[in-house]
Design a protein around this nucleic acid. Structure first.
Length: 731
RNA sequence: GACCGCUUGGCUCAGUUGGUUAGAGCGUCUCGUUUACAUCGAGAAGGUCGGGGGUUCGAAUCCCUCAGCGGUCACCA
């Protein structure tokens, strides 16, 4: 053995050994123990956060050694919007965008792009030593997953859990598409702020042209000035004559801003939309998908937004309804990342899931701890989120995902707005009935059918003039069904519910809650028993790692430099569940030193036994006091490590092993018995071997490579010829 | 603004149901060893456990309060 542990020499070789011996596949004997791997993005490459999957690997290795039939099931997610966004950046290099392609072509291109870039992350997982059953991996766009997800939608629709309603999105009236928060560019700008007379009130707005869509005015519930108006109707004089509006009280109103009174325009402002939801207000669309005012604007119909704003303001001034104009109002507006124009918050038709009954079932299992959270405080988080969870809009106006399996008969629906690439390659946008059907069908990009449209559910195209729904499911709609699609059919009865799932707290509500919801709905059972919150990986200053901050540390670099074991241990040592890990070079280095310590203890053992080849290493009849003591301490350690791992206190377990191996065993016991070992003391030699091999077993889940490496080197000393990964836990 | 959490030696954090001299890693200092390991060993310095108040025989640990920090959500018409 070399004087220093060289991880580069062993890691690859050892991983191959494990894979070749099929050690990651569940054993035939033993109680099932199952962990689902949260599917990483198919085209992702490893970042520091993924390294926290180490927690799962430690548990699966621990349970494997304890004799369970372990299965850690991996998979990959198509990651809807995020992937499409990445792909678009790629397109932008050639000066193109998604608007240049019809739907089908775009989908195919992204598919190829993802295929080309996928698989990398599994290679990187293997560098970390992850012992997942790779042969079970599935992708969220695999045929059987798509089939399953569609079936769920169909079932929900049949049972009245699906409905159509409008939903407010950021829409680019130039590009003819809605944009996700990621694509939106916030720009600071100075615009006039108009103080408009509104019946008994004066209120401030930058958007007078949307006043035709006002369906209420709102004040803060505690605002003394307007207390007497709350709940009453007020009469307002406007450009199109007099009308009445209700006064509602809502916490969203800032009494300090302007006059403390706001007009509520649910159809064209996200905040107002929320207020509208809370107070059951009517939604009036005064701006259409092309950015022009609708018939609700009376004589202003047909004007585009910018012109309308100027005209409306002028006309209001003429009839003395504007009190004053603040010309230096600095605010932030949202613009299209692509064309730079202002985005219009608009309501577009969407598909919704009624969650009330579904979420109550989730609440129950969380409340009575059929599903437990580690650490416990996340139970509260989950319950808090569940109580405010509203109906779930599941449509996404993107291509990359599972298309909602719905078709519209164009003869039965008068107002279907389509965008498509025509036969000359030009982008067109308008009502289907103004175009040639087959041309639209060929170059189809998007279909927007109004909320009350007639539709049928089908995964294949029906006969006749049908256009498909072009929205796709929210990624969480499919990944929420992950536990139900990823476990092989023949193992469902034994492996569902699964035992453990690890995740980051930021997707607790998106993902964990939905998985519970779908499992109870579809299988009448919980999907997993324990939810463990990984810690967030931060840089040495405690800042969350992100590309935009430029403080990203590549786990692979750290592995190259210090070894996988060192990285793994530095993520666990000193880090309880659900906290923050400071990942710094120094810490990984400290763990590298520990790996080397383990290696050298093995080396000492080897040298000692080489000098004493003639002696039997079996347990002698009498054990000396000093030896008895360390063995007793070892037994205590074994017990406490086992307990800690059972309770998911991985940090405590590792810290105890570290402390014992280094400061009890190496520093004290070995130093004191060196003379006895020199003198071929049988009790000492046996104890040395016994304690060391036990430490290797205890440490193996945390540092699989170095422990396996020494185990191999000490082949002739072992009590079994199994690899360390397959030996049994020393308890 | 709402909710949750945090505040322990220079830095990063442990500290289980309140119980003897409050721990670790990194860093600092002194000394040592060079046939297990310098990716080492021995030792040392360094904390009135954020401030104040309370409960208790006893509080880093429970309660109240103030201050600071962080996270999540909601917002800036």
């Amino acid at each position: 053995m070399e004087p220093q542990y060289d991880h580069n020499k062993y890691e690859g070789e050892i991983y191959n050994l494990w894979e070749k011996s099929e050690s990651f596949k569940p054993s035939l004997k033993g109680e099932p123990y199952t962990i689902l791997m949260p599917p990483p993005n198919a085209n992702a490459s490893l970042h520091a956060g993924h390294a926290m999957y180490t927690v799962d690997d430690i548990l699966i290795r621990f349970k494997r050694m304890r004799g369970y039939s372990t299965s850690w099931i991996p998979g990959m997610d198509h990651a809807g919007f995020e992937t499409q966004f990445v792909y678009e950046k790629h397109l932008a290099k050639d000066n193109k965008s998604r608007m240049d392609f019809d739907r089908e072509t775009l989908y195919k291109n992204i598919f190829d792009f993802v295929k080309e870039n996928s698989g990398l992350i599994y290679k990187q997982f293997k560098r970390l030593g992850f012992s997942a059953d790779w042969s079970k991996s599935i992708f969220t766009l695999d045929d059987n997953v798509v089939k399953y997800v569609n079936k769920t939608f169909e079932k929900m629709e049949k049972e009245g859990l699906v409905y159509r309603d409008s939903y407010i999105v950021n829409f680019c009236t130039h590009c003819g598409t809605s944009l996700a928060e990621l694509e939106v560019k916030h720009v600071e700008r100075i615009d006039p702020l108009y103080y408009i007379k509104y019946g008994p009130f004066v209120l401030a707005t930058v958007r007078p042209e949307t006043k035709f869509g006002d369906t209420a005015v709102a004040v803060h519930p505690n605002d003394q000035r307007y207390k007497n108006f709350i709940g009453k109707e007020i009469e307002v004089e406007g450009l199109l004559g007099k009308f009445t509006l209700k006064v509602v009280a809502d916490k969203a109103v800032d009494p300090e801003f302007g006059t403390g009174v706001v007009k509520v325009t649910p159809g064209h402002d996200p905040v107002d939309w929320e207020i509208g939801k809370r107070h059951n207000l009517e939604i009036k669309s005064v701006i259409d998908l092309r950015g022009k005012l609708t018939s609700l604007a009376g004589k202003y119909e047909g004007l585009n937004v910018k012109d309308a704003r100027i005209k409306v303001a002028e006309d209001l001034q003429k009839i003395n309804l504007i009190e004053k104009i603040d010309k230096n109002y600095l605010h932030s507006v949202i613009t299209c990342y692509k064309c730079g124009r202002d985005l219009e918050p608009l309501t577009v038709p969407n598909w919704f899931i009624k969650v009330k009954d579904l979420k109550n079932e989730v609440k129950k299992v969380v409340e009575n701890e059929k599903i437990k959270f580690y650490p416990k405080r996340f139970k509260k988080h989950m319950l808090a989120w569940l109580s405010v969870m509203h109906d779930w809009p599941i449509s996404r106006q993107i291509v990359w995902g599972i298309r909602i399996p719905v078709w519209y008969d164009i003869d039965k629906n008068k107002d279907i707005i389509v965008s498509f690439i025509d036969k000359r390659g030009n982008k067109k946008f308008g009502n289907i009935h103004d175009f040639d059907f087959s041309e639209v069908e060929k170059g189809l990009q998007t279909v927007r059918a109004s909320v009350n449209s007639n539709y049928i559910i089908s995964t294949t195209k029906p006969n006749g003039k049908f256009l498909p729904e072009t929205d796709t499911f929210d990624t969480w709609f499919s990944s929420g069904q992950w536990p139900l699609v990823v476990i092989p059919e023949n193992e469902l009865s034994s492996r569902f519910p699964t035992d453990f799932i690890g995740t980051l707290s930021d997707i607790l509500k998106f993902w964990i809650s939905r998985m519970i919801m779908f499992s109870i709905y579809l299988k009448k059972d919980i999907p997993f028993k324990d939810v463990y919150l990984w810690s967030m990986v931060a840089d040495s200053k405690g800042m969350k790692m992100s590309k935009s901050k430029g403080n990203v540390i590549s786990p692979i670099d750290l592995i190259d430099k210090y070894g996988a074991d060192s990285l793994r241990m530095s993520l666990i040592y000193g880090t309880p569940a659900g906290s923050k890990v400071i990942l710094s070079d120094e810490k990984v280095k400290a763990m590298r030193n520990f790996s080397n310590k383990i290696w050298n203890l093995g080396r000492y053992l080897q040298l000692s036994f080489e000098k004493n080849k003639e002696i039997s290493f079996e347990k002698p009849k009498s054990i000396e006091k000093e030896d008895e003591k360390i063995i007793r301490e070892l037994d205590t350690l074994t017990l406490s490590v086992t307990k800690s791992l059972d309770k998911y206190n991985l940090n405590t377990a590792l810290e105890n092993i570290y402390e014992f191996a280094w400061h009890n065993f190496a520093d004290i016991y070995i130093e004191r018995t060196k003379e006895r070992i020199e003198n071929k003391n049988i009790s000492g030699l046996y104890t040395l071997k016994h304690v060391y091999l036990t430490i290797l077993k205890l440490l193996h889940p945390f540092a699989p490579f170095v422990t396996e490496a020494v185990w191999l080197e000490l082949r002739y000393l072992k009590d079994s010829n199994k690899n360390l990964i397959n030996t049994s836990w020393p308890l």
